[in-house]
């Protein structure tokens, strides 16, 4: 067998698998989104956008991403810098930080529900300290802000570690000599971070941010567990159209919208954090 053909042959099963179980259903969904009763139409998108919930879901989803991702990025950078500098116990620290990664998002939502619930840990703690005399309804339908904060907290808790792991790996690739050179030539620790770490970390930052932003637009289970229907998000609405309202075509249109937003942001970050070919390590 010719050596040149071998890699393609080896990739064939995975490619076929993806074509059959990803591209084909994707084409079906896309087709469903732009047809109704067999005729081509944009009605599904109009129906979706015409729903009174639609602006709220878009706003909630974007707001959540806009608040959660920057906080996660900052925390992940901070944690990664600390972990990278550890001489002993580095892997132990990584494992501890990475624990939330092993938990599904629904389970994460339930954990935080157990904290914020009317009979949850937080209420128990507050009443035993005498701060409140009866349990507070943190996640009631009137307290949208608290729900939002709880969801943001749960998301930050759950998914910062994945960014950190990517950034720790990226920082490990930056040769120590660059830091020493910067130090000798007068850069303070902060200047070294801004002028050496950040620019040289761009490929990892790109991966981490894109991954997180896509996941942020797909937020669903955590919101469902903590907010129910009180904090509608795009993915939740897609679920509603499909299963509560039994309208596959609008659900497909909604799914396509999420995809479009994700692609848009991915392209944006690929462009903004691009490393010119000549400036790579």
């Amino acid at each position: 067998m010719h050596g040149k053909a071998l890699p393609y042959l080896l990739l064939m099963p995975a490619t076929l698998f993806l074509c059959i179980f990803f591209l084909y259903p994707f084409a079906l969904v896309a087709f469903e989104a732009v047809t109704r009763d067999g005729a081509f139409t944009f009605d599904n998108f109009r129906t979706m956008a015409g729903s009174w919930k639609f602006p709220v879901t878009v706003r909630n989803t974007l707001l959540l991403a806009a608040i959660v991702v920057p906080i996660q990025l900052t925390m992940a950078l901070l944690m990664a810098s600390v972990v990278s500098r550890l001489e002993t116990g580095r892997s132990a620290a990584l494992y501890v930080f990475a624990i939330p990664l092993g938990i599904s998002d629904l389970a994460a939502g339930l954990i935080w529900l157990a904290i914020f619930d009317q009979s949850g840990f937080l209420n128990t703690l507050l009443s035993s300290l005498g701060v409140v005399d009866r349990p507070v309804m943190f996640l009631g339908y009137q307290s949208k802000l608290t729900i939002f904060i709880a969801v943001a907290l749960a998301e930050i808790w759950r998914a910062t570690a994945i960014m950190m792991v990517i950034l720790v790996a990226g920082m490990g690739l930056i040769p120590k000599e660059y830091y020493e050179a910067a130090e000798v030539f007068g850069a303070s620790p902060w200047q070294r971070f801004v002028r050496i770490t950040l620019p040289l970390l761009r490929p990892s930052l790109q991966t981490a941010i894109i991954l997180r932003v896509i996941l942020a637009f797909e937020v669903f289970a955590v919101v469902a567990a903590l907010g129910g229907t009180n904090l509608p998000v795009l993915m939740g609405e897609t679920y509603n159209w499909q299963f509560t309202l039994q309208d596959r075509n609008v659900a497909a249109a909604s799914a396509l919208l999420i995809l479009a937003i994700s692609i848009g942001f991915t392209l944006f970050f690929l462009r903004v954090l691009r490393v010119p070919k000549e400036a790579r390590i």
Partner: peptide, 20 residues
């Protein structure tokens, strides 16, 4: 710290910053 010593240094692997 090095930056307050009035020194400059040439490193074995040059340490020429790739992004500049």
């Amino acid at each position: 710290p090095p930056r307050e010593r009035g020194i400059a240094m040439v490193f074995q692997n040059y340490a020429v910053f790739p992004h500049l």
